[in-house]
Design a protein around this nucleic acid. Sequence first.
DNA 1: GATTAGCATTCTTGAGTCCAGAGTGCTAAA
DNA 2: TTTAGCACTCTGGACTCAAGAATGCTAATC
Lengths: 346, 346
Amino acid sequence: MPSGPPIGEREREILTAIVETFIATGDPVGSRTLARSNREGLSPATIRNVMADLADAGYLEQPHTSAGRVPSSEAYRYYVEQLTGKASLSQEDQGIIQDSLHGISDVQEFMERTSHVLSLISHNVGITVAVGGPKNALEHVYFSRLGDQKVLAVLVTRAGLVRDRVLRLDLPQADLDAAARFINENFRGWTMEAMRTELSRRLEQERSEYDRLMTSVEQLYRQGALAADETAQVVFVEGASNLVTGEQDRQRLQELLHTLEEKQKIVELLGAYLDAKQEAVRVVIGLDEALPSMRNFVLIGAPARVGDDVMGSLAVIGPTRIDYQHTMTAVSYIARLFDKILNESE
Amino acid sequence: MPSGPPIGEREREILTAIVETFIATGDPVGSRTLARSNREGLSPATIRNVMADLADAGYLEQPHTSAGRVPSSEAYRYYVEQLTGKASLSQEDQGIIQDSLHGISDVQEFMERTSHVLSLISHNVGITVAVGGPKNALEHVYFSRLGDQKVLAVLVTRAGLVRDRVLRLDLPQADLDAAARFINENFRGWTMEAMRTELSRRLEQERSEYDRLMTSVEQLYRQGALAADETAQVVFVEGASNLVTGEQDRQRLQELLHTLEEKQKIVELLGAYLDAKQEAVRVVIGLDEALPSMRNFVLIGAPARVGDDVMGSLAVIGPTRIDYQHTMTAVSYIARLFDKILNESE
DNA sequence: GATTAGCATTCTTGAGTCCAGAGTGCTAAA
DNA sequence: TTTAGCACTCTGGACTCAAGAATGCTAATC
């Protein structure tokens, strides 16, 4: 689809104008409208010619014969690419962000609020994911006997993520302490994955010569005290109601909202598109490959990092008709803030 | 509105039939339709007379002159009241519930899944709230130094709720341990509210003779390590997308979804209507008094308790046109299951 | 050769009309 | 007390119609 002759200056300008007008109004844009708002006084006819070329090249689409043109995914990609990225956030937006995120030192709390803030200032869906996957480094564990048969297991990752669970176990506190000490001394700094593998190996190997300690550890392990699978990720999705205005088709709206409720899918989506390596804001146009219900939607996201550690991702999901410049600026601003605020305390 | 002559047997029967037909079809129901499905062969005309009476008494409303009748809130209340409550859950639903909730010992996890299950089997919005308010009894606290300037504070309530926060503080682990010991020894079993009051009193009083211990405690206190305000409640809302089908008005749908995103409002709503004392399932018809956007919506909820402790609430929110019998049965079933499963381990 | 004016043509959209269908209320008969 | 009959009301879908917005093409113009 992204074929055809290379785009010249005039084509570029007109394409940009079309994208911007369409984003602003939502209506297919015609040659006449365009001619009016054009700086150089090009006539509608000329513009029509250019538009025909752009359509041939796959940048424009026509809902029906006598409607204006609508940008294709390819057009949005092109548009985003040529954005300068120099824009800065309005005073007002900066205020909203500062007010909500100031003075937070808890990663999860930061992420929860961030998803909210993102949805507020983008008027779309704000999403944050705190990575809780097997790649995380273990900081320490803590076990505490609660009732007759209950044990509280708290697991802290180096990234500052805390996961707690109440297990059904009946072990004296002394044994729990011993088990915690054992794990903390042996596995601090290991990835969850490696820790689990090694632990399971040792449990297997030493099965014959089990002592009290290993019995406790095994029980805790079996009960999932050290679980850190994909499902352990923490996801915040906020602002789904913002989509009601945009999506006309009832059926599709429902599917859309339903998809957003499936946290697991969202994690996969972000995981697939936002790899941790790349630094800056990333724009993915056309999410339907990953999620069919997300046709005509885009993802604008950035990794959330503190220093060199990736703690998760921040993103906005919205229709292709989203305000790219503004949203990109906001996402990038918050991503930087994330680093800054949480770094202060390191 | 709920006035007029007492309802006789025939009226009762017809009113019930109207409510049930309306719930099933969603269309205003007319005398003709009703006459067809009526056991005793009453003629449309007779039914019309009864309907006129019921309308006078405030049980029926008319969208416009020549449409059928629609049940009023009063009619739903009456309908719910005369439900036998004897119905039992289908095998299939029981299966779904058991599969999702089996073997969970963590209150929060149970609640999270429950909200999902409730939305699944009611085809509406499932809501659970774990009480985290000031009335909760403290079980114990635990502090752990994380990094240079970070402290993890874990607070466990007697109800089994765990709340963790990372604070920005720089205290050696020894001091943290001392502070935790102090709080655990002095305040275990106190309500959060009482604990906070007493603590703040002592801090005030002994300000002059501060020792190392009290300094640590004060710092922790100030940083919110012991916070347990309303906002600390944990709320799970699931299945909002189910409302898309039901609500026709775009504007209202948006408001509705927006309201459901405001967790705080939801907590208040449940708090206002589901007082902990009453045992069984409660049905509240007409939520617009509390939340204007919830006109034409009902709440079907029950307290979530383990033994005598109230841990929160379970509820379904849906349109007045909800399947009352089924939803009530489901809510009550899960409420009992909650007690049963979590009690096993006490 | 690039640009533009002119024009026939296509397609959407909203307004207006019309009619069948469903339901009501009332009166009079059973 | 119940029911049949009937005039009347209101909605909603089908249809038509005209205005408006765009287009593509051809021929004239710079």
